[in-house]
Computed example of a mutant assay.
Amino acid sequence: MPEAYADILVVDLLGGIGDLLMLLPAVHGLARRNPGARLRVLTHDPGAELVRADPAVAEVRTPRHGRPGAEREAVVEALAAARPDLAVSTTRYDGIAELLEAAAARAVTNLWRGPPPHQPVGARYLEILHAEGLLDAADRSARPRVHVDDEARRAGERAVARLVGEPLAPPVVLVTDVGMAVKRWPGRRWRTLAGELARRGHPVLTVGPVDPDAPLGVPLPRSDLPTLAGQFAAVGRRGGVVVGSDTGPVRLAAAAGATTVALFGPTDARRYGMGGTDLQGLPGCPHRRPTAITEQPCWWEARCPLDAAGPACMADLDVAAVLAAVAAR
C-alpha cells in the first residue's frame, strides 16, 4: 500500500501568481492521494487568495513582511506550528530546502531537477512526484484548475453580463499589461488587434492599465483575484477568449476554464504553455534558454541582443497570427 500522510506542507515562494498556478495540479493530486490529510500551502500574496477557498487546502500561510529573509522566517513558523509528515517545495533559496529536509518526516524539495528542454514545467512537477510514489499515474496529465467559489462566480457573471449584453460574437479579453518588460507586446499591435476584433463584432474587454488616449476596449472592474477568476469563467462560458503574454492573469484565465491565446517571447511555449493556443515569437532565437530563463541576456532589463528597439521575439508575433488564433478558438 502507498504510504499516506496526515500533514502535508506545500511551499511555493517563487513570487509569481503563475508559479503557484503551475503547482496547483500537484496540490490537488496530493490531496486526492491522501484523503483526510491536513494540507497546508505556504505562498505569497496575492496568489494566496486563489487557494484560501480551495476545498483541498486546509490552511494558507504567507510571509509576514516584504523585507529580506521573510520567506525563510515563514517556513520556520510553518514548521514550528506543525512538523509535516511530507513537505513538497519548488523553492530552494535561502536554505529553505534544508529547513524542510531537516524538519519533515519526508521532503521533496527540488521539483525543477533535470528537466528535458521542452517538457512543460507543471508536467515536470507531476512526473517527479509520481516517480517519488506520491502521485498516481493519472495525475501526470492533470491541468491547473483554480477553485472559483459561488460568490466569486456570481460576481464575475454579473460583471461580464453587464459589459457585454447579448453580443453577436463571443467576448475577447485583452490582458495588455505584464510584469516584465521583456514579455511586453508592442502597444500599437494591441490597438490594431482591438480595432479588428471590434470590427468583427466581438465585445473587447481589457485587464490591466489602459491608455486613456487610445482605449482598447471596456475594462473589467478591478477586483481581487478570486473575482477576476469568476470574470474569466464567465467569459469562458460565453465561448470567449483571453489573449495576453506569458503572465499570471492569462494563466488564471486558463485555470478558470477560459480559452486562451498566449503570446510567448523570451519564455519557451513548450515549457510554459497554458494548454490553449500558445504562439511562439522567434522560435529560433539563439539566446533563449528553456530551462534557465533567468540566465538569458534579455531577461532582467529587456535588452534584446537582436534588436535595440525592444524584444525581437515579441515583435515577431504579428496581429494577423493572433487574430487567426482567436478565430480558430
Rank of each mutant, 00 (worst) to 15 (best):
R329T: 11
D211K: 04
A155C: 06
G66W: 01
H202I: 03
V11C: 12
D150A: 15
D7G: 02
P68T: 11
E73Y: 00
L20Q: 04
T91I: 12
L135K: 01
N110C: 11
P117C: 10
A123E: 15
E301L: 07
T109Q: 05
A48D: 08
R189C: 07
D224E: 11
M1C: 09
T247Y: 06
V210D: 05
A253I: 09
L21R: 04
D318C: 05
L225W: 05
C304F: 01
P221T: 10
A70S: 15
A302T: 06
A78Q: 09
D94G: 03
C285D: 05
D278H: 05
E166M: 01
Q280F: 08
T90F: 05
G248R: 13
A214G: 03
G18F: 08
E3I: 06
L163K: 05
V121S: 06
W112P: 00
G265M: 05
T176D: 00
W185M: 03
A161N: 11
V148K: 07
W112N: 07
R222W: 00
S245Q: 09
V146Q: 06
A325L: 12
D246P: 07
P305S: 09
D177Q: 12
A258N: 08
C304M: 02
A74S: 14
E77T: 13
G114N: 14
T90P: 07
T247N: 12
D224P: 01
A181T: 08
L50E: 04
A320T: 13
G236R: 08
A269P: 11
P219K: 07
V175G: 06
V182L: 07
V173R: 02
G122F: 03
R238A: 13
A6I: 01
D45Y: 00
E98C: 00
A320G: 12
E157D: 15
G239P: 04
D149Y: 09
D268W: 05
D246K: 11
G217I: 12
R83G: 07
G217D: 13
T192E: 15
G310R: 02
R64L: 14
L14Y: 03
G230T: 10
V164T: 15
T206P: 01
A82R: 15
P219A: 09
Y125L: 06
V160M: 10
R162K: 13
D246S: 11
A137L: 12
P84K: 03
W300E: 06
D307F: 01
R184A: 15
R158N: 03
